[in-house]
Design a protein around this nucleic acid. Structure first.
Length: 737
DNA sequence: CTCGGAACCA
DNA sequence: TGGTTCCGAG
C-alpha cells in the first residue's frame, strides 16, 4: 500500500507542487497510529493492489493538488484567490486549502478531493459522474479510499471511514446520498459554490456579461470581495452553508423554484446539451441548460432581451440532458478533457444547468476564463461568472416573478456580515436574501444585503445603499437526522431550537432594499408569465395561468425567494428542489396547502413589517404591489391546519409577523416530520416530476428529459402587472393591519 | 451498504 | 473544524 503521503502529508499544508511523485512515501507514519491496532483487523483497504496506472493516478492526484494552486495570473489574481491551475483544471482558491482561513479547512477536504478525482479522467474507473447532475458513483470504493488515505496520509483509510466522512457532508449539505444506488452520492454544488463564494458580487452579473468586465476585485469597491469569508464560513454547515444567503436563495430557487415545474423536476435540465464537450462555446454550456420548459424566446420575453445583445439567438431547443460528456454532471463537462472549453463556471453547478442559458450574459470565453482548460474551478472569477449566471438564471428564470420584481438587484451579502449574530431581527441566516427570506415567509426582506445586486438585466445598477446584511433567515439550522428527530421530539411547541429565534425574526426577514423594487421592470413581470410554473411559483398564488393541472401546489411551489428559504429543505439540496414540496405534504401536517402556506406567507403581502421593506411594492417601481396573495381563495394563506387561525380571508390582514410565525410553526412541524420528508419528497417529487413529465433526480434512473411545456402566455405580462397591483394593494392592507 | 453516534485527533 | 476510527443498528 503505498500511500503517498510524502510531502503532502508531511505538512498539513498542501503538498508542494511538483512533488508529485515523491510522495510516494508511504505513509507509514505513525501519527495516526491510534488505532492501528484496531484497524488491523479490518479487511479493507489495505490490501488493495493497485495497478500501475492507479499508482500513477495517485500521484497525479497529489500533484494536481499541488499544482492547482498555482496562482492564476488571470483575473483571479485578485484577492487571495489563487489561481487555478491550468493543469488540473480544478482549482480552488487558496483559502480553500488554507489553514489560516479556516481552521477547519487546513487541508484538502474530502469533497475537494472527490471533485478532483471526478474531474480526472484517469480516475473514471474509480469514481465518475453518473446520473443526475452532481451525482457520482464510486466505482471502486476501496481505491478511492486508498487514494484519499494517501492524500491524507492515512494508510488505514478505507471506504468505511471515507464514507463516514462523506456522511458528515450530508448535514452540511455538501453531499447527499443517492438512495438506492450503491456508492452513489450527489454533490450539492450550489452549496459548494455558494458557500465558497458568497461574497461574490453578482451585481456585475446583471446584464451583462461579465465577459467584458471581469469581476472587479474587491478592492475596488466592487462588491466582489474575494476572500472575505473564511473557509470555515464556507463550509460550516449551519451558517456557512447557508450563508450565501442570496445565493442560496438563488440556488434554491433554481432548484425549487420554478423548478418544480421546470428544472426542478427535471433535474437539471441543463445537463446536456449545450456546450458540447468542449463546453460549447461560450454560452453554449448554459444554453444547454435552459430549462426545457422555457424556450429561449420565452425567456427573452420574460426578461426582455438579454442584456447582451451579443447573445446569439436562442438556439434550437436544447436537448435536455444531452451531454457531451456523459460522465459529467455538468452541462459542459468539467472534466479536463478536451472539453477545455467548458468553463467552469457555468457548467459547474448542476444547478446552473437549470438555468436558462439564454439570458446568461455570461458567455464563457476562454479568454475570460482564467482557467481555460479547467472545467471546474473555484477561481473567483469563474465562480463569479458562474454565480452571476446562476443568479441571473435564478432570478430570471427560477425566481418567481415576484422575486424578480423585487429583487432585481439583489445584493449578495458581503462577506463580513454583521448579521451573524443577528438577532431575531436579523434573521438568522446570513444568507440573506436568498435564503429565503422569510422562512417561510416570504421573504420579503430585503435581501440585499448590501451588496451585490443581482441584477436583472433590467436593473443593473442600482444598488441599494443599504447594505444590510441579510436578515431574514427564518430557517432553523439544518438538522441532521438526529437533530431532526430530536427536534421532533422536543419540539412540541414549535421550534425549539434557537434557530427559531431567528425565525421569529420574521421581521428579520429579509429586507429587500429598494433594490428590489427597482427591479421590477416589465421584464420581470413578464417573467412571471413565463411559464405556468413560473407564475405559480412566482406570484403568490395567483393563478395566472391555469397551470397544468398539476397540483397547483407544486407548481406554485416556490416562489420567491422567500420561499426559498424554506429552509432546510432547500438547503438541503438546492439541487433538489422538489423535495420541499413533498415535505410539506408529507410533513406532518401540512395540508396540501402547505406550500401555499409557505408561500402564502411569502405571498402575503408582505408588507414588510417594519423591518421589512415591502417586498413587493417596490418603491421605486411604479408598479404597484402585487397582490401577493391574491391567490384566489387561497386559503392558502390560511394557516394550515395546524396553522394559526387566520382565516383564509382574514389572512390578508394578518400582520406579517403572525404570518411568519405561522409559517415558521408550520415549518417546524414539518421539519419534525421532515425526516421522512426527504424520502417522501423525493418520491413525491419523482412523481410529480413524472407528472410533469420531468424526471427527478430520484436516484433511480434518470428520467427522460422534461419536455418543455407551457410556453408563457403572452398576456403574462399583463397578468403580472395585475399581480403587482394586487400585491401592492395587499401590502397596503397589511400595513393597515 | 448505509447511517449516525461517540470518542478522539490535529 | 474536519475528519478518523469504531461500532451498533437497520
Amino acid at each position: 500500500m503505498a500511500f503517498h503521503c510524502g510531502p503532502v502529508c508531511a505538512r498539513r499544508g498542501r503538498p508542494s507542487p511538483g512533488k508529485s511523485d515523491s510522495d510516494a512515501d508511504e505513509g507509514g507514519r505513525g501519527g495516526e497510529g491510534i488505532s492501528e491496532l484496531r484497524r488491523v483487523g479490518k479487511p479493507g483497504e489495505s490490501g488493495r493492489r493497485r495497478s500501475p496506472a492507479q499508482a500513477s493516478r495517485e500521484i497525479s492526484a497529489f500533484r494536481s493538488q499541488a499544482v492547482d494552486r498555482e496562482p492564476d495570473g488571470g483575473a483571479s489574481g485578485r484577492g487571495s484567490v489563487k489561481a487555478p491551475c491550468a493543469l488540473t483544471g480544478f482549482a480552488f482558491p487558496d483559502w480553500a486549502y488554507k489553514p489560516e482561513s479556516s481552521p477547519g479547512s487546513r487541508q484538502i477536504q474530502l469533497w475537494h478531493f472527490i471533485l478532483e478525482l471526478l474531474r480526472k479522467e484517469e480516475y473514471h474507473d474509480v469514481i465518475a459522474w453518473q446520473g443526475d447532475y452532481g451525482e457520482f458513483v464510486i466505482k471502486d470504493p476501496d481505491e478511492v479510499a486508498r487514494l484519499w488515505g494517501a492524500r491524507k496520509c492515512k494508510p488505514q483509510m478505507n471506504y468505511d471511514k471515507l464514507s463516514r466522512a462523506l456522511r458528515y457532508y450530508y448535514n452540511k449539505r455538501i453531499l447527499h446520498k443517492t438512495k438506492g444506488k450503491r456508492f452513489t452520492y450527489k454533490f450539492n454544488f450550489n452549496k459548494l459554490v455558494l458557500v465558497n463564494y458568497p461574497f461574490i458580487d453578482m451585481g456585475s452579473a446583471g446584464s451583462g456579461v461579465p465577459q467584458s468586465a471581469p469581476p472587479v476585485p474587491s478592492g475596488a469597491g466592487a462588491h466582489f470581495r474575494f476572500p472575505p469569508s473564511t473557509p470555515s464560513d464556507v463550509l460550516s454547515p449551519n451558517e456557512d452553508l447557508r450563508s450565501p444567503g442570496v445565493f442560496s436563495a438563488v440556488a434554491r430557487r433554481m432548484a425549487r423554484g420554478s423548478g418544480r415545474s421546470e428544472a426542478a423536476s427535471g433535474r437539471w435540465a441543463g445537463r446536456g446539451g449545450g456546450g458540447g464537450p468542449s463546453g460549447g462555446g461560450g454560452g453554449g454550456g448554459f444554453r444547454s441548460i435552459l430549462h426545457p420548459r422555457l424556450s429561449h424566446d420565452s425567456l427573452f420575453r420574460m426578461y426582455g432581451p438579454p442584456a447582451n445583445t451579443a447573445h446569439p439567438p436562442p438556439r434550437a431547443p436544447p436537448a435536455h440532458r444531452v451531454h457531451p460528456d456523459p460522465l459529467s454532471p455538468f452541462p459542459v463537462s468539467p472534466l479536463p478533457g478536451p472539453a477545455g472549453a467548458g468553463l467552469l463556471a457555468p457548467p459547474l453547478s448542476p444547478a446552473l444547468s437549470m438555468t436558462p442559458s439564454s439570458h446568461l450574459p455570461y458567455t464563457p470565453s476562454p479568454t475570460l476564463s482564467p482557467m481555460l482548460g479547467s472545467h471546474f474551478s473555484f477561481n473567483p472569477e469563474d465562480m463569479k461568472r458562474y454565480l452571476q449566471a446562476h443568479t441571473q438564471s435564478v432570478y430570471n428564470y427560477h425566481l418567481s416573478p415576484r422575486a424578480f420584481l423585487h429583487y432585481p438587484n439583489i445584493i449578495i451579502p458581503q462577506p463580513q456580515r454583521p448579521d451573524k449574530g443577528l438577532g431575531p431581527g436579523a434573521g438568522g441566516e446570513r444568507g440573506g436574501a436568498g435564503r429565503g427570506g422569510l422562512p417561510h415567509g416570504h421573504g420579503h426582506g430585503h435581501g440585499h444585503a448590501h451588496g451585490h445586486p443581482l441584477h436583472h438585466p433590467l436593473h443593473l445598477g442600482e444598488e441599494p445603499p443599504h447594505l444590510s446584511p441579510f436578515k431574514f433567515k427564518l430557517q432553523p439550522p439544518p438538522l441532521g437526522r438526529k437533530q431532526r428527530e430530536g427536534q421532533a421530539q422536543g419540539r412540541p411547541g414549535s421550534s425549539s431550537s434557537g434557530s427559531l429565534s431567528s425565525t421569529s425574526g420574521l421581521g428579520s426577514s429579509m429586507s429587500f432594499g429598494s433594490d428590489l423594487s427597482s427591479a421590477g421592470g416589465s421584464g420581470v413581470i413578464s417573467n412571471s408569465s413565463s411559464s405556468g410554473s413560473l407564475n405559480s411559483a412566482g406570484l403568490p398564488k395567483i393563478k395566472v395561468e391555469p397551470i397544468s393541472d398539476i397540483e397547483s401546489e407544486e407548481e406554485v411551489e416556490v416562489t420567491d425567494i422567500s420561499d426559498e428559504d424554506v429552509d432546510d429543505r432547500d438547503e438541503e439540496f438546492d439541487l433538489f428542489p422538489h423535495r420541499r414540496d413533498r415535505q410539506l405534504n408529507g410533513g406532518a401536517a401540512p395540508p396540501p396547502a402547505d406550500d401555499d402556506l409557505d408561500e402564502d406567507v411569502f405571498k402575503a403581502p408582505a408588507p414588510p413589517p417594519p423591518g421589512l421593506p415591502p417586498f413587493l411594492g417596490p418603491p421605486a417601481e411604479p408598479r404597484r404591489p402585487l397582490a401577493l396573495k391574491s391567490e384566489p381563495g387561497e386559503p392558502g394563506e390560511t394557516p394550515p391546519a395546524g396553522a394559526p387561525p387566520s382565516g383564509p380571508g382574514g389572512t390578508k390582514c394578518i400582520p406579517l409577523k403572525l404570518r411568519f410565525k405561522r409559517r415558521w410553526s408550520e415549518d417546524q412541524r414539518m421539519e419534525a416530520s421532515s425526516e421522512e420528508s426527504d424520502d417522501k419528497k423525493v418520491r413525491a417529487e419523482g412523481q410529480e416530476a413524472d407528472r410533469n413529465g420531468e424526471g427527478e433526480e430520484n436516484g433511480e434512473g434518470e428520467s427522460p428529459p422534461p419536455a418543455p411545456d407551457c410556453p408563457p402566455p403572452p398576456n403574462q405580462r399583463r397578468v403580472s402587472a395585475e399581480l403587482h397591483r394586487a400585491t401592492a394593494q395587499l401590502s397596503l392592507e397589511n400595513k393597515d393591519c
